[in-house]
Amino acid sequence: MPTPDREFPVAPPAPLKGRGAVTNMQGRYEKDARESVDDGWTHETADDDGAPVLRTQVFEERAKSILTRNNSPDIPFTVSLNPYRGCEHGCIYCFARPTHSYLGLSPGLDFESRIYAKINAGELLERELAKPNYQPDPIALGVNTDAYQPVERDLKLTRRVIEVLHDCGHPFAAITKSSLIERDIDLLAPMAERGQFMAAITVTTLDADIARTLEPRAATPSRRLRTIRTLAEAGIPVGVSIAPVIPFVTEPDLERVLEACAEAGATTASYIVLRLPWEVAPLFKDWLTAHFAGRADRVMSRVRDMRGGKDYDSDFATRMKGEGLWADMLKQRFHQATKRLGLNQRNRGILDMSDFKRPAIVKMPPKTGQLDLF
């Protein structure tokens, strides 16, 4: 962990195989400091190389609500849905990491190894859409944490949510790094044909070695390109999200990523400059020291050039794209490349809400405690 007078750790912990964070730093709400000490009594599971293995734990929870609303002027949607809290993909840059602090857990390794599954997501959504005063608005699926992370293969919570949206004719968009989205083409393609669905695949780099440390349990870059092609061939509008752009790490790949995705069938593209809110900043610096020690100072210097001299600035006007000379140059590179490749030339389209059908009233499981009078 970085100390107050030192930005990068002198000797960061060795990375764990298949994990993004190299530490399990405490969340910002913890009052007591804790430090791990090996007293010889702990026996960790190890892989074939003798390195410790951190197993993923999945906890079921019954959520009280499922739709999240925002009024942020720099976000192109107002309603989102996330079936999971925490994400096993382990992307070190994930802006959602600090949310695990609300659970009393670490935004570091806990975030990617202790996953909370909202097992009643489909029921809650159906009940929400059935309300007499509900007004349909396109839903963004999997924006905070990936709706198609590994545990979805077994739990199928995202599949259930899509079934509800499909049956109601409710428009939505999904963003993911996983090829598992191909599983649901039988539902997604008909919705896309009716103008009710569009997809975005996040591709940060084409370098598989960088991706392996940056996004350790997400699909490889080549597999994501294949997913773009599969979705496009099924008639689904698909775009690429280059998020985040990390100076001197993924930034040199910008034009090549756009070219590869356009060739695969993407028709739209967007990008976001690296964001380091709250605990993400020290976690990212630890990761930099562990994997790109020789570039760490240059990376953070360029980040600050685009953030008004700070690690991060949450101002709505600049938090997604940055500011200053280097941010302007990145913007020019992106727009020149998309224009040359024919990306973003067509209207992105407005999802059609005209076919929305309110579902029948859903009978939820009985409440515990005192019974209702009627």
Rank of each mutant, 00 (worst) to 15 (best):
F374C: 12
R194K: 14
D328C: 00
G195I: 08
G322H: 04
G27E: 12
R19K: 11
P359Y: 09
D48G: 03
L165W: 02
A234D: 12
R340A: 12
T45I: 11
K64S: 15
E44T: 10
P98S: 10
A293Q: 07
E128G: 13
L283I: 15
R194H: 15
L373C: 08
A174W: 01
A189W: 00
G324F: 00
P83C: 03
D286S: 09
R275F: 01
E112P: 04
A96W: 01
R194T: 08
R226T: 06
E60N: 07
A96L: 06
V240F: 05
Y93K: 02
I201W: 02
R333G: 12
V151D: 06
F374T: 15
G169H: 07
D146G: 03
L254G: 07
G324K: 02
F248R: 13
I350M: 15
A232Q: 10
I119A: 08
L109W: 07
W278P: 00
K321N: 12
T268W: 06
R183T: 13
D313A: 13
C261A: 14
I119N: 09
P277H: 09
M306W: 01
E255C: 11
A51L: 00
D313N: 10
V257K: 15
P9I: 09
G235A: 01
G142W: 02
E279H: 05
N347M: 08
R348W: 14
P83V: 00
C168P: 02
A121S: 14
K321V: 13
R183K: 15
E182C: 13
G239D: 10
A33S: 11
M353D: 05
L274G: 08
R298V: 02
A33V: 04
I246F: 04
F77I: 11
A200D: 01
P2L: 08
A33R: 06
E323I: 14
R224H: 04
L16P: 04
E126Y: 01
